[in-house]
Each structure stands twice: as C-alpha cells, then as structure tokens.
C-alpha cells in the first residue's frame, strides 16, 4: 500500500490528491469520511489523526499528513521520476510553485467555504467569502494572462506542477458557489489545459472534456480514452 486517503467525495481538497494520484498513476486505499451530514472529521477517532479537524488526511507508511499541499509534494516526490511536478532541481521555478501552493489556501478559504455554504448549507459569511473569492480569481487571471503572454500555459515554469493541481479544484468549482468563471478567459484556457492532461479524472461539479471522434477513425469507438 502506498498510502491511505481519508476522503470525502465532494471535497475539492480531497480531489487534489485523487487527481494528482491519477495523473501519476498511483494506486492507494481510501476511507470514506461522513463529512456531511455526519461531521465525522470533527469527532474522534479522526480528530486524533488530525487535530485540525480537516480533510483530507493522508497516512503513509511512516507519517500522517494533514496539509493538502504537503500531500501533493509527497506524491510528486515519491512517484514523479521526471521531477517536473515538484521541480526540486529548478530553483528559478520552485519559489513560484510554493507561492501558488500558498495561494491555493486563499481559494479554499473563500470559494471553498462559500461552496460549502451554497451546496451543503454550512455556515459562512456569504458576502465576505464571495468578495474574497472574486479577488482571488482576478489575481489568478492576471497571473495566467501574464504566463500566456510569455507563451506559457501553467502557473509556474513550462510544465504543470503541484501548484496547478492545488489551484485547480476550487477555481473549477466556483460555479457551485455561485461565482461563474466565464469572465476569466485565461482561467478558462488553463482549466481546459488541466482537464486535457493524460489521466485526468473528474469529480461532481467538474466535467470531463467533450472529445471529438478522430475523423480518420483511428480512435473511433474510444471517445473517452482519457477517462480513468
């Protein structure tokens, strides 16, 4: 067993781990947590595993990780032989990756919190989280537009990194929270790029790309060859 993921199917943060594991083709075990309506993540025995009372929780053979972005780094470090998802040898890019890993927490605390409110009736200050979510999307849009001018399509460097995976779910799920992302062209292009990655998987609220049948018929009948 590589690791065990304490998982909630509607959580964007849990999906980050599921997504990167799928992209890196890593098999793992899951434990379903009754986040809603049960609130199991805030009760024993899960509180003993993660005193912060958050999900996901990752248990490896020698440690327990409770910070989503740390789990992404752990996955990349162990299963990405190319060292591109966590570019440890590219010291020009690495600080930028860490910058956007941190930024992902802003998406969680704004769009993620508002989404729990609009989807599951959890308490949240709707106007404050909405304003913070829109501010975060605008900042992300600026970054991606600048990258686009440089000819790059990812948040940091020339290939996708853990930062893209960290920022993807709550950006893609913003319509769940009542924040449409139609007005952010660079974000929409980037969302498309992430969804195009080989091995991409969906979650409720994030759909797969519609794939065209190969006109030459080479892949006829396999309309969904990227689906996990």
């Amino acid at each position: 067993m590589t690791f065990t993921l304490y998982n909630y199917v509607l959580s964007g943060n849990c999906y980050k781990i599921r997504l990167l594991a799928a992209l890196l083709d890593v098999q793992y075990g899951t434990v379903a947590v009754n986040f809603h309506p049960g609130g199991e993540h805030r009760q024993e025995p899960l509180l003993r595993l993660n005193p912060a009372g958050t999900l996901p929780i990752m248990v490896t053979s020698d440690q327990t990780l409770t910070e989503t972005q740390a789990m992404l780094v752990w996955l990349a470090q162990h299963y990405d032989d190319s060292n591109s998802w966590w570019p440890i040898h590219d010291l020009d890019t690495l600080p930028t990756v860490i910058q956007w890993l941190g930024f992902a927490n802003r998406l969680t605390s704004s769009i993620g919190a508002l989404r729990q409110h609009t989807l599951l009736n959890k308490p949240a200050d709707a106007s404050t989280t909405r304003a913070a979510g829109i501010a975060a999307l605008r900042e992300l849009e600026c970054r991606l537009a600048e990258q686009s001018i440089r000819g790059e399509q990812w948040l940091a460097g020339k290939s996708p990194t853990v930062a893209d995976i960290a920022c993807f779910p709550y950006t893609a799920l913003s319509p769940d929270a009542g924040i449409e992302n139609d007005d952010y062209p660079a974000i929409r292009s980037w969302l498309h790029s992430v969804r195009s990655l080989d091995g991409f998987i969906t979650m409720p609220g994030i759909h797969e790309l519609h794939q065209m049948r190969d006109p030459a018929g080479a892949s006829a009948g396999t309309l969904r060859d990227h689906h996990g």
């Binding site: 434990v31 009754n34 049960g38 409720p204």
Partner: peptide, 9 residues
C-alpha cells in the same frame, strides 16, 4: 459513510 458518499456523488 460509503453509502452516503455514493448517493451524494
């Protein structure tokens, strides 16, 4: 939890 998860999904 698994039953709830399936239906919510």
């Amino acid at each position: 939890s698994e039953l709830i998860e399936f239906q919510q999904m």
